[in-house]
Amino acid sequence: MTSQRFNLISLHDAIDLLGVSRSTFDRWRKLKQLPFVKIGKEILIDKNELEQWVRHHSFSLQNPSFASGATTTITPQEQSTITVGYQSGTAHMWTALIMKELGWLEEELNIANPSRSVHVKWLDAANGTLLLQGLIGGSIQIASLGDYPIVLSQSLRQTLPAFRPVLLAFDGKTSGGQGISLVMRKGLEINEISEICQWPLSSAAQSSAGYRLSKLLQSLGGHEHHFEHKEMDECMAGIVKRKLAGSVMWEPYISLTQYHGVGQVLFPEGMGENYLTGIVADENWARHHKGDAVAYLKAHVRVHMFIRNNPLAAAELISRAKGIPPEITASIIAKVRWDAIFYSKDMNTLQQLSHPLFQEICFEGEYLQHAINALKLPLVSCDPLEGEWAVEQLY
Rank of each mutant, 00 (worst) to 15 (best):
L105C: 05
E78A: 11
A67Y: 11
Q79C: 11
G89M: 08
T90V: 12
F66K: 01
L102A: 09
Q77I: 11
A70R: 13
S88H: 07
E78D: 14
L102S: 09
E78W: 11
W94Y: 01
T83W: 04
E78Y: 12
A70I: 10
F66H: 09
G89H: 10
S65Q: 14
V84M: 09
H92L: 10
S88L: 04
K100S: 13
S68L: 09
T71H: 12
S68E: 09
I98N: 02
M93K: 06
L105I: 14
W104D: 06
Q77C: 08
F66L: 13
Q79M: 11
Q62Y: 08
L102W: 02
V84A: 13
Q79P: 00
E101N: 09
T81K: 12
S80M: 08
W94K: 02
H92D: 05
W104Y: 00
T73A: 12
L97E: 03
S88F: 01
Q77R: 14
W104L: 12
K100H: 08
Q62W: 00
I74M: 11
S60V: 02
T75M: 08
A96W: 02
H92F: 10
T73L: 14
T90W: 06
W104S: 10
S88M: 04
H92Y: 03
N63A: 14
L97T: 14
G89Y: 03
I98R: 01
T81W: 04
G89A: 06
A96F: 04
G103W: 02
Q62T: 11
P64V: 03
M99K: 02
M93E: 11
P76T: 11
A70Q: 15
P76V: 14
Q77A: 13
T83N: 15
E101S: 12
I82H: 10
S65T: 10
T72C: 07
I98T: 09
T95R: 02
S60K: 11
Q87G: 06
N63L: 08
T90G: 01
H92M: 11
S60M: 08
S80L: 06
A70T: 09
E101L: 08
G85H: 10
H92W: 00
A91Q: 06
T83F: 03
G89V: 01
G103I: 00
I74T: 12
V84E: 04
T72H: 05
M99S: 13
Q77F: 14
A67K: 01
I82E: 08
T73N: 10
M93N: 13
S80F: 02
F66A: 09
E101T: 10
Q62C: 00
G85S: 09
Q79G: 01
T90C: 03
V84Q: 07
A96T: 13
T75D: 07
